[in-house]
């Protein structure tokens, strides 16, 4: 073989050392960069968590709800269900890819459809999860320093003293309720307004707290048993009177009744960014689904497009596996 021939083969194109098409390879490289983006977010979450390692909210106590089961303490079951839904959708996706390899149009159609349905169930579940998190549960008091004081009392359970949370709305005194109208721009100076007023003033919380002798305060600090510290009655009153500043219920980007506001910020940002990926994944899947139905890939003689969106869809599942671990388990 002359050098010219060898050079032509090696350096002037036509060689496929990785044995994948351009589109598939670029999808892989996109996935690498997106994986690094998510890692950046999760590592930032890790940074903040390590910074407040002794005061971070305990996920089991934050995500305790299950749809249609009110008042039942079901930590993590719903997220486990969501994880399972996403894994199932990954399976239907890979079955669609496999059917595509066999040029089986009807099977690709069915499996793509199922993947879209499971994807929508997942996005819906996430919306429900957000809604529950935003609405909140027991309510808490934020201190001047931005810490959270939660309320509860000891109850007898099988001969053991167990700390049980009490909702602020159950003890706060509304008799002394003084309605202060929220200032809206439409009934005053048009350019001046204020944010929503908390449901209870500090006075009402304090009065209610003094009237209920068994209620105690639980701080953010995690003790050596891995539980949040419960203060004595005197300390509780002292903390509430001296440092209590604002009644908060639920979570948003500013306040968070479950603990550090950073937890809520990262929760909204990371699960939101992931949810956005799932949502765009569903949209792309729908487009591909219609292309399959219309026979575009049938005519092309190759279902590689299904394989490419499949890679993206599996990646979304892959990210969720990590989000699940770092937000809910660890």
């Amino acid at each position: 073989m002359s050098t010219a021939v060898a050079e032509g083969k090696t350096w002037e194109g036509g060689n496929e050392p990785l044995k994948v098409s351009y589109g598939k390879m670029m999808m892989w490289f996109f996935i690498v960069s997106d994986a690094l983006t998510f890692s950046g977010f999760l590592a930032a979450y890790g940074f903040s968590r390590f910074k407040f390692i002794d005061a971070w909210p305990i996920a089991d106590e934050v995500f305790t709800h299950f749809p249609f089961l009110h008042g039942v303490d079901a930590p993590m079951y719903y997220v486990a269900f969501m994880t399972f839904i996403l894994i199932i959708s990954s399976v239907t996706m890979v079955l669609a890819v496999d059917a595509g390899h066999h040029l089986n149009k009807s099977k690709v159609t069915i499996y793509m459809f199922l993947t879209i349905v499971f994807g929508l169930i997942f996005v819906g579940s996430q919306a429900w999860e957000w809604n529950t998190f935003i609405k909140g549960d027991y309510g808490a008091v934020q201190t001047k320093g931005g810490n959270i004081l939660q309320f509860g009392h000891y109850v007898d359970k099988d001969g053991e003293q167990v700390f049980k949370r009490v909702a602020v709305r159950d003890f706060a005194v509304s008799a002394a309720h003084q309605e202060r109208a929220q200032h809206e721009s439409r009934n005053g100076i048009w350019f001046a307004s204020e944010g929503a007023l908390p449901a209870y003033t500090m006075d009402e919380v304090i009065h209610g707290f003094q009237a209920n002798k068994d209620v105690l305060i639980r701080t953010q600090i995690i003790n050596e048993h891995g539980e949040k510290t419960v203060l004595s009655r005197e300390e509780s009153i002292n903390q509430l009177m001296k440092n209590g500043k604002l009644y908060v219920e639920g979570a948003n980007l500013h306040v968070n009744e479950y603990g550090s506001p950073l937890f809520a910020d990262f929760f909204f940002f990371i699960t939101g960014f992931h949810g956005f990926h799932v949502f765009s994944g569903v949209i792309i899947n729908i487009i591909i689904f219609f292309n399959v139905v219309l026979g575009t890939y049938e005519r092309r003689g190759s279902y590689e497009m299904v394989e490419k969106v499949g890679l993206y869809w599996h990646f979304v599942d892959l990210v969720w596996v990590f989000v699940f671990t770092f937000f809910y388990l660890v």
Partner: peptide, 12 residues
């Protein structure tokens, strides 16, 4: 991950 967790622990 190593850099950020290390620094987070330091700040703590």
């Amino acid at each position: 991950t190593f850099i950020l967790l290390q620094e987070g622990g330091y700040v703590f």
